[in-house]
């Protein structure tokens, strides 16, 4: 499968999110096509992670609509969205401490796919193999370093059997070699038909994967389209450099 389907698999229209008087998202329109890889960039506080939270159902949105594979997600919980095929990772990994790497992934497979124990075990093993975490399967997560925690974060999301995966700054803090491994993994996922949305500050890694870039600033979508054109956009440069170009 490739990005040739015209119907977006995930579409958000006019999404607003306010915390009291603080408006974090201002009518954000966002979509991603089946099998597409989209990058989201923007300065800190642009609302990127909030957009992920809104899509994944971590909190109710103030107004707007979100559809996944044509189904309205309004009123569905994060757990329901996960089981509908939408997975999300956290910028700061949040493993289930006190459980092993395998158990973390197994819980995901069990709950996210609604699989029986045998199927969940198989899925967990597959995902651990794919993410290169198999040797650590019986390690308690509390003993993992940052890279492995990030890989576990991705593995746990993959174990839910998603059709769309939202990756939140999984590249930060990694070495160049680790980053290359990560890029290869995400490319492999995408060529396997998965739709990828990736928030990342490390542009050279992001641009090796995504075919479309969305730039956000101050809770709005500033520009989107071909990655190089978006990065050359004067408003995008202004948002990144903090001032208008002369």
């Amino acid at each position: 499968m490739s990005a040739n389907s015209s119907e977006p698999i995930l579409r958000a229209v006019g999404v607003n999110k306010s915390y009291g008087a603080l408006k974090v998202l201002h009518g954000v329109d966002f979509h991603v096509l089946q099998g597409e890889a989209v990058g989201i960039v923007g300065p800190n506080g642009a609302g990127k992670t909030t957009l992920f939270g809104a899509l994944a159902g971590s909190f109710p949105i103030t107004s707007g609509t979100i559809h996944l594979q044509g189904a309205d997600l309004g009123g569905t919980s994060a757990a329901e969205r996960c089981r509908m095929g939408l997975a999300r990772t956290y910028q700061v990994p949040r493993p289930f401490l006190g459980m092993t790497v395998f158990e973390n992934v197994y819980v995901s497979a069990m709950s996210g796919m609604g699989a029986n124990s045998a199927r969940a075990t198989q899925k967990a093993a597959e995902v651990l193999e794919m993410s290169g975490m198999m040797p650590l399967a019986n390690r308690p997560t509390a003993a993992l370093g940052l890279l492995d925690r990030k890989r576990l974060e991705v593995a746990r999301a993959l174990a839910t059997g998603p059709s769309v995966i939202l990756l939140d700054e999984i590249g930060g803090g990694l070495t160049e070699a680790e980053l290359t491994e990560l890029v290869d993994l995400i490319r492999a996922l995408q060529s396997g038909g998965m739709t990828v949305v990736w928030i990342e500050h490390i542009l050279h890694a992001l641009l090796r994967v995504v075919t479309r870039l969305v730039c956000m600033a101050e809770g709005r979508v500033l520009a989107q389209g071909d990655p190089r054109e978006v990065m050359a956009h004067p408003e995008v440069q202004a948002a990144y450099l903090g001032s208008s170009p002369e």
Binding site: A56, G57, S58, S77, A78, A79, E80, C82, R83, A87, R88, Y90, R94, F96, L97, G98, M99, E103, N104, Y106, V107, S108, M110, S111, G112, M113, G114, R156, A157, A159, T160
Partner: peptide
């Protein structure tokens, strides 16, 4: 395991599909 995941981090557990 779902119980322990929820006890550790109910939000992250929800994102893994745990009700």
């Amino acid at each position: 395991r779902a119980v322990r995941a929820t006890a550790t981090d109910s939000e992250a557990a929800a994102l893994c599909g745990v009700d």
